[in-house]
Write a protein that binds this DNA or RNA. Structure first.
Lengths: 254, 254
DNA sequence: TTAAACCTTTACGCTACGTAAAGGTCAAGG
DNA sequence: CCTTGACCTTTACGTAGCGTAAAGGTTTAA
């Protein structure tokens, strides 16, 4: 059986445009072109298309599908496994999104307008959740459960005004850090101001404060690439600069 | 506090391009433009951006976010609820994809090359699963469990050769249906040929065949929009045409 | 004063097609 | 034989949400 574009489209369920596109990008070439320039597909192409659609269903992008079906030495298992990981991540993310949406709906239906308490609470939950997700495990193992739980508990109990103030302070620190970093001296007045503000900022979420803990956190900032990535958004090396400023501020320079 | 593009980008984590884009589409306009044409944002804009990013996290598209935040009378709850449905669907789909991927990996690691048995089995499972999902519930309630289970069992036990033959036959029916439909007469030879082939096709998956069941199925094709959508791919009205042809074939025209 | 680091607008690129537009081909009916 | 209509072709613009130059003006600190 031979198929023109329309016929193949009919039995496969994809559009004619899709078939021409797949031809164009070299994903599925017709068996031959007839004298009038028509694309003619054979049984082999029908089978190939089925394979392609199988992977497409799995949300593999066309470029990868091309590799998978064209290169038989390509490690399909590995590709599928990493693809599975991707799907799992997507699902985990969806789960969280759904929870947040549900919470938001509930808060609205509770008669409390977005803007206010519940939205704020949703944000807090999200914040805690993200903190927990990003840093929880490692911090727990390195610094003990109490620290983390205490931080979360404090965060949960925080007032809306404080929350906003804390956020603003966090923003301010980022901006100031940029300016101070450009001067290059962690002992400078501006850098020491940042360290002070950073302590203030920490106080919002920390149950108890100690110089040692502050210094330890500063060291962790540098050691943990996720913190580094965050503060280095300001500039490369800003994380180390912040650590140095804090250590000097605490009188704990090495 | 006032922010230029770069500063707002820094504290919010989005790119400068994103902010300019949001300005461009009217999602987030700066508080003012200074004498040099620079965008200047204030605290209000920072708050708005936070809201925007909140919804963006939920995978709401920017157009909808615009509606949500710009029109306070807009029914946010409804929007969020339908959005929740969307997310739920996505997740259900992901679950199935993951199962299929896992199965495919297992089949490959079992040493059986794709192309062959296991891929074929995966396809069959998928087919059964899809049938079950699409029509299972309704068919079960309307026509009883045995019919469905028998169909699935038969499908599971089908041989590879038969499976291919069945698929080919299904394709052929679609193509023939198109041609016959264009002639417009369900009593025509070509239409009756289709009815015969349709019976043949059914026999592949049905445990037992009866005219009544065949006629009932034909009626269901028309009654159920999912079947209608499938056969109407050929042409509008093709489903009814198919039913009429089958009824005539069975000698059961009303 | 000069370089670096910002800022601006314009515009093309990305995915996987949908959707015309402009024109050639083919089978069926009159 | 001719027409009609359904098919076929290529070209090309549009979609969402930006990334990424390019080309040029502004501000800031040394």
């Amino acid at each position: 059986m031979e198929y023109t574009v329309k016929k193949l489209a009919l039995i496969s369920g994809v559009s004619g445009r899709t078939l021409r596109y797949y031809d164009q990008i070299g994903l599925l070439k017709p068996a031959r072109i007839n004298s009038s320039g028509y694309r003619i597909y054979g049984q082999k192409e029908v089978d190939l298309l089925q394979q392609i659609l199988f992977y497409r269903e799995l949300e593999v992008n066309l470029e990868d599908i091309k590799k998978i079906i064209s290169d038989p030495t390509f490690d399909q298992t590995e590709a599928l496994k990493s693809h599975y990981q991707l799907l799992a991540q997507k699902r985990a993310r969806l789960d969280k999104l759904m929870a947040t949406v549900k919470g938001t709906i509930a808060s609205i239906e509770g008669g409390i307008p977005m803007q206010d308490k519940e939205k704020f609470a949703a944000f807090k939950d999200k914040l805690i959740e993200e903190n927990e997700k990003k840093y929880g495990e490692e911090i727990r193992s390195k610094y003990g459960d109490e620290t983390v739980d205490a931080s979360n508990a404090k965060l949960r109990g925080i007032s809306e005004g404080d929350f906003k103030a804390m956020n603003d302070l966090g923003e301010e620190i980022m901006v100031l850090l940029k300016k101070a970093y450009e001067k290059g001296d962690p002992a400078s007045v501006s850098a020491q101001e940042i360290a002070a503000k950073h302590k203030q900022w920490l106080m919002y979420s920390w149950g108890s404060y100690s110089k040692e803990a502050h210094a330890g956190l500063a060291e962790m900032y540098v050691a943990d690439e996720r913190f580094t990535a965050f503060y280095d958004k300001v500039a490369d090396g800003a994380t180390e600069f912040l650590r140095d400023a804090i250590l000097i501020y605490l009188g704990m320079e090495k």
